[in-house]
Amino acid sequence: MGNNVRTILLEKSAFADNDAEADALREKLKKEGVFLVNVMSSPGAGKTSTLTSLINRLKSSYKVAVMEADIDSDVDARSIAKNTGVESIQLHTGGMCHLDAYMTETGLDAVDGKSFDVVFLENVGNLVCPAEFDTGACLDVVILSTSEGDDKPLKYPLIFEKCDLVVISKIDAVKFFTFDFDKCVENIRMRNPNATIIAISNRTGEGIDALTTYFTNMINKWKEN
């Protein structure tokens, strides 16, 4: 032993293989004309409620499916099925706090992703590590509720840097919390000058029109070329 020991330099990010898988998945989705949306937020910020509001507007024009990544329950998958009628499945994350591109692709195979126009992925509720693992989605969405405070973009910079859309949810409840809307927009802008920001309420329906228009445009653009 010893004489044929050698060192191989890698100098490579631990996330590099996931990034490559995610890029390959996105390319495949582009060819198939499937628009995959990754929805991230803290627990309880309103992922399932917002998907329900949005899907009820989109389902007459598009074939929609939902993949729910809960650590251990199928509550959200059942809630989506009941309140929207669209296909929804439970992804088993095996206790993992995030989804990676491989798990996402496995889920897409299970739901027969290519027979849909839009597939929504409700990621595990957490603002930290879903940001580090590209799922292969065509659009990354962060939902921030007014009850969480306007400083979240400062505390969790990466997820706000990487997203395409920030949905500010529960605006009907803004008066109960110390949430400064302009400050929040400024904090998001500091991290991400290009993200679209849409404020909504799943209670009153405010902002759901704007959200529907945004998604309609994005889906059509993805399927166009």
């Binding site: 050698r6 191989i8 330099l9 910079p157």
Partner: peptide, 20 residues
């Protein structure tokens, strides 16, 4: 100022391996 950003410290890098 709070107008600051992280330069290093969030990465996880595979540097090298020793092999036979």
């Amino acid at each position: 100022s709070k107008n600051t950003y992280l330069i290093t410290g969030s990465e996880v890098t595979i540097k090298d391996i020793q092999v036979e």
